[in-house]
Amino acid sequence: MQTFNLETDLAGLKLKNPVITASGTYGFGEVYAPFYEPSILGGITVKGITPLPRLGNPVPRLAETPSGLLNSVGLENPGLEAFLKNYLPQLASLDTAVIVNISGFSLEDYALMASSFQRGCGIAALEVNISCPNIKHGGMAFGTDPKSAEEVIAAVRKETDLPLIAKLSPNVTDITAMAKAVESGGADIISLINTLLGMQIDLNTQKPVLANTMGGLSGPAVRPVAVRMVYQVYQAVKLPVIGMGGILTWQDAIEFMLAGASAVSIGTANFGNPLAPVEILEGIQAYCNQRGYQSVGEIVGLAHAQKG
């Protein structure tokens, strides 16, 4: 194979390759270490953290759907203080870009979280979760109204000099309005999509399967929606995009990149196949080599260029 440049620069967030793991599917970087060295990847995104510890939602938290998975974990996490003390040192030692996903219930929460992370603290970027569908009075509320989304991102922007990723919810009428709002707020990068709000009902009990009634749908079932939204956001804003939503194979990843994603995030696929991110990385490389590209960035957004 010819030498080929996998390096990806997302508005200052430098990745050795464009494959990242998605928040909430990779623990704090320790879970999949027995399967492969996390430093193979371009980056890892850790489980979303909140100012205070959270027990999350009651069980059942999971329901399988055709080619999909509903979850309502509800941001179970050890809280900011325990994260900084117990998890950050180990994460900082990893030779990969560590992205910390932060959530809150108010502007002050988000600002507090952001102020705890600066350049040099051992992480590469902050991902601002304004799209969690599984907690009441928070998360997604910020991610479905452009004005609130802009305010949250602006509040976070003031508190940290790290590259800021705004993670968008697909549960909106116009994703481009949300993308423009977070661009105005000062985001450096946009990641999408978070899960689609869904539910499942048990025919025996005649009640919702999830204890939280509704949950977020992920997996291949949501992929066409995600590809469409990446395509739209790529056209609407100048910010680089991290694409995610049901990527199981390298072919899926390439599709997102052609739609306009500079990097891809692997989430639910980890649950079925722990080696998915590694196999996807190898596949992207082989595809680009075979087609004679010199750098992986050359395929980003090609679906648009070919249109005209």
Binding site: G24, V31, L55, P60, P274
Partner: peptide, 17 residues
């Protein structure tokens, strides 16, 4: 027994209290 996704501790789907 609880509904499980990853089986290795990543997804936090199968918790007990």
């Amino acid at each position: 027994e609880e509904r499980m996704a990853c089986g290795v501790g990543a997804c936090l789907g199968c918790v007990c209290t």
